[in-house]
Amino acid sequence: MMAYMNPGPHYSVNALALSGPSVDLMHQAVPYPSAPRKQRRERTTFTRSQLEELEALFAKTQYPDVYAREEVALKINLPESRVQVWFKNRRAKCRQQRQQQKQQQQPPGGQAKARPAKRKAGTSPRPSTDVCPDPLGISDSYSPPLPGPSGSPTTAVATVSIWSPASESPLPEAQRAGLVASGPSLTSAPYAMTYAPASAFCSSPSAYGSPSSYFSGLDPYLSPMVPQLGGPALSPLSGPSVGPSLAQSPTSLSGQSYGAYSPVDSLEFKDPTGTWKFTYNPMDPLDYKDQSAWKFQIL
């Protein structure tokens, strides 16, 4: 009977010793046993002879290597770790002494450095960015050149030099007046198309007034536009458009034309069986010896 009264063996659950049927240790109110408190290391007290050895090595170098620390530790009968900690504390003490010396050398008012006064946003004049500046400075420094007289040679050079070769001289006033084509001369031969040399188009003023001019072949195509416009036809070669000034309004060009419109200028042929003959000019830059190549039959 006494065997049943004795408590059973101890069981360990999660490293906790349980005594038989008792489960009081598993209750929430019972805390787990805490780790033992780490003991504080005792402070090391250095003797005068030990301090002399350490100070002598510190005077040589503030960062001794492990071999120098072990050698000193053997002399003063201390572990190497204590020597390492002593050098660490000695360097910190040396830095603190240097900072105190710097503070003593500075004057009393030198510690508080005078800061520059901050400028207020409204006091300083700042350039306004509302208006974009002129990058080319046209509004201040540029002045347009004065327009020359209508009959000045410089204007003629600016007008005619675009179309004339570089080897030719500017046309005088008398020749510029001949550039304007007359109405009857352009409409006299509506079906004849003559190819003149390129030099005649640039230099010869008579080429624009003769039936064999460069633009005589364009007349049949330009004249039928007159009834559609409801007024006189516009002429690209009329009046002052080739003269001194090219800047004319469309209203000033509306009254200039080749001449009176005639039914002869239409595109319809009077004789459907007729042929169109292209007159060959020996001055043509295209060297075609066979003139029969310039004739064709309209079917």
Results as ranks from 00 to 15, higher is better:
Pro79Val: 08
Ala174Gln: 02
Lys60Gln: 05
Asp24Gly: 11
Arg119Thr: 01
Gln50Trp: 15
Gln175His: 11
Leu136Glu: 09
Leu267Arg: 02
Ser22Asp: 02
Ser257Gln: 09
Arg95Cys: 15
Met283Trp: 09
Pro36Gly: 11
Pro64Met: 14
Leu222Val: 02
Gly137His: 07
Pro145Asp: 03
Pro197Glu: 07
Thr154Glu: 03
Pro147Met: 03
Pro133Tyr: 05
Gln50Cys: 15
Tyr11Leu: 06
Tyr191Trp: 15
Pro172Met: 14
Ala233Asp: 02
Glu80Val: 06
Thr45Asn: 09
Arg119Cys: 01
Phe278Cys: 00
Tyr142Ile: 11
Ser249Lys: 08
Ser152Arg: 11
Pro127Lys: 12
Ser167Asp: 04
Ala181Thr: 07
Asp271Tyr: 14
Gly8Val: 09
Val72Ile: 09
Lys88Ser: 14
Gly178Cys: 07
Glu70Asp: 03
Trp276Gln: 00
Gly137Thr: 09
Tyr261Asn: 01
Val264Leu: 11
Asp287Asn: 11
Arg115Leu: 02
Gln50Leu: 15
Thr275Cys: 08
Val85Tyr: 12
Glu173Ile: 14
Phe46Glu: 15
Ser128His: 05
Gly217Ser: 04
Glu268Asp: 02
Pro282Phe: 14
Arg40Gln: 09
Gln106Asn: 08
Ile298Tyr: 01
Tyr208Leu: 04
Arg115Tyr: 00
Gly110Ala: 04
Asp65Ser: 08
Tyr32Ala: 01
Gly239Ala: 04
Ser169Glu: 08
Ser254Glu: 02
Lys118Ser: 01
Lys289Ile: 04
Ala181Lys: 10
Asp24Leu: 14
Pro190Glu: 04
Arg115Asn: 03
Thr187Glu: 03
Leu57His: 12
Ser81Glu: 03
Pro197Lys: 04
Asn6Tyr: 10
Lys93Pro: 12
Lys75Ile: 12
Ser249Asn: 06
Val180Ala: 06
Ser252Cys: 12
Ala15Cys: 12
Pro285Trp: 08
Gln248Arg: 10
Thr123Met: 02
Ala158Glu: 01
Val131Thr: 06
Ala196Lys: 06
Pro244Gln: 06
Met5Pro: 00
Ala192Val: 14
Lys289Gly: 01
Lys38Glu: 12
Arg82Asp: 14
Thr61Glu: 03
Asp219Cys: 15
Tyr67Arg: 07
Thr129Ile: 07
Gly231Trp: 15
Lys60Val: 03
Gln28Leu: 15
Pro9Glu: 02
Ser245Phe: 13
Pro153Ala: 09
Lys88Trp: 13
Ser206Glu: 02
Arg91Asn: 14
Gly183Leu: 14
Cys94Gln: 05
Pro263Asp: 04
Ser245Tyr: 08
Tyr261Cys: 04
Ser254Gly: 04
Arg95Val: 14
Pro133Gln: 04
Gly137Ser: 06
Gly20Ile: 11
Trp294Ala: 00
Ser252Ile: 10
Val264Trp: 13
Ser182Trp: 12
Thr275Asn: 00
Ser257Trp: 08
Ala59His: 06
Tyr195Ala: 01
Ser252Lys: 13
Ala92Leu: 12
Lys60Leu: 12
Thr194Ser: 03
Gln248Leu: 14
Pro145Gln: 02
Ile162Asp: 00
Ala73Pro: 12
Val72Gly: 13
Ala114Tyr: 08
Pro144Phe: 10
Lys120Trp: 01
Ser252Met: 09
Gln100His: 09
Pro135Phe: 08
Gln175Val: 12
Asp130Phe: 07
Asn89Trp: 15
Val13Gly: 01
Pro116Tyr: 03
Gln97Ile: 04
Pro244Lys: 11
Phe87Asp: 12
Ser81Ile: 05
Thr123Val: 09
Ala174Ser: 08
Tyr4Ser: 00
Asp219His: 13
Thr61Val: 06
Pro133Cys: 13
Leu78Cys: 14
Tyr208Asn: 02
Pro211Trp: 15
Glu52Thr: 02
Arg90Cys: 14
Ser12Thr: 15
Gln100Ile: 08
Ser249Arg: 13
Asp219Asn: 14
Pro205Lys: 09
Arg98Asp: 05
Leu18Asp: 00
Asp140Val: 12
Ser167Arg: 10
Gln84Cys: 07
Pro224Arg: 13
Leu78Arg: 04
Val66Arg: 07
Pro135Gly: 08
Asp290Pro: 13
Pro205Val: 09
Thr273Arg: 09
Gly274Val: 07
Val131Leu: 05
Ala189Val: 11
Pro236Val: 14
His10Lys: 05
Pro127Arg: 08
Tyr261Arg: 11
Lys75Trp: 15
Gln101Ile: 15
Ser257Asn: 04
Pro240Ala: 05
Leu229Thr: 03
Leu18Asn: 00
Ile162Leu: 01
His10Ala: 05
Thr47Met: 12
Pro149Glu: 04
Pro282Glu: 02
Leu267Cys: 01
Val242Asp: 02
Gln84Arg: 07
Pro172Arg: 12
Tyr11Cys: 00
Leu51Asp: 14
Ser216Asn: 05
Gly209His: 10
Thr187Asp: 02
Ala17Cys: 08
Asp290Asn: 15
Glu42Ala: 04
Asp287Tyr: 13
Ala166Ser: 07
Glu53Asp: 05
Lys38His: 05
Ala189Ser: 05
Ala29Trp: 10
Glu173Val: 14
Ser143Asp: 04
Lys88Met: 15
Arg69Pro: 15
Lys38Gln: 15
Leu229Met: 04
Pro170Arg: 04
Pro205Glu: 00
Pro220Met: 15
Ala59Leu: 05
Tyr67Asp: 11
Pro285Tyr: 09
Asp287Ala: 14
Val66Tyr: 02
Ser161Arg: 09
Ser206Cys: 10
Val23Trp: 08
Ile162Tyr: 01
Glu53Gly: 12
Leu246Thr: 02
Phe269Lys: 01
Phe201Glu: 00
Tyr63Gly: 15
Ser212Tyr: 12
Ala112Gly: 03
Gln228Asn: 06
Gln104Phe: 06
Asp271Glu: 04
Glu268Met: 12
Gln297Phe: 10
Gly274Tyr: 12
Gly178Arg: 12
Arg90Val: 13
Ser143Arg: 04
Ala181Gly: 07
Gln96Arg: 03
Pro108Ile: 07
Asn89Glu: 15
Arg69Cys: 12
Leu299Ala: 00
Leu146Arg: 08
Gly217Phe: 11
Ile76His: 11
His10Val: 15
Ala68Val: 04
Tyr214His: 01
Thr129Phe: 06
Tyr208Ala: 01
Phe201Gln: 00
Lys118Ala: 04
Ala17Val: 14
Lys102Leu: 04
Ser213Glu: 01
Pro285Ser: 07
Tyr214Ser: 01
Pro31Val: 14
Glu71Ile: 12
Glu70Ile: 08
Tyr258Cys: 05
Pro147Arg: 10
Pro145Tyr: 05
Trp163Arg: 02
Asn281Trp: 15
Met26Thr: 08
Met283Leu: 11
Phe269Asn: 00
Ser266Thr: 07
Gln62Ala: 08
Glu55Cys: 09
Trp86Ile: 15
Leu286Cys: 03
Thr47Trp: 11
Ser223Pro: 05
Ala158Ser: 02
Leu171Ser: 05
Gly230Pro: 04
Ala114Cys: 05
Tyr67Asn: 06
Ser204Glu: 01
Ser204Lys: 10
Phe296Gly: 00
Asp140Asn: 04
Lys295Trp: 12
Pro125Tyr: 07
Leu179Gly: 02
Lys60Met: 09
Ser143Ile: 02
Thr194Trp: 12
Asp130Val: 12
Ser238Ala: 06
Ala92Arg: 14
Glu168Gln: 05
Pro232Ala: 08
Ser19Tyr: 12
Thr45Arg: 09
Trp276Thr: 00
Ser245Gly: 08
Ser257Arg: 11
Ser169Asp: 04
Pro7Phe: 14
Thr61Gln: 04
Phe215Asp: 00
Val157Cys: 01
Leu171Asp: 05
Glu42Asn: 02
Ser34Asn: 05
Met225Lys: 03
Val83Lys: 14
Ala189Pro: 04
Trp86Asn: 14
Gly20Cys: 12
Tyr280Asn: 00
Val160Ile: 09
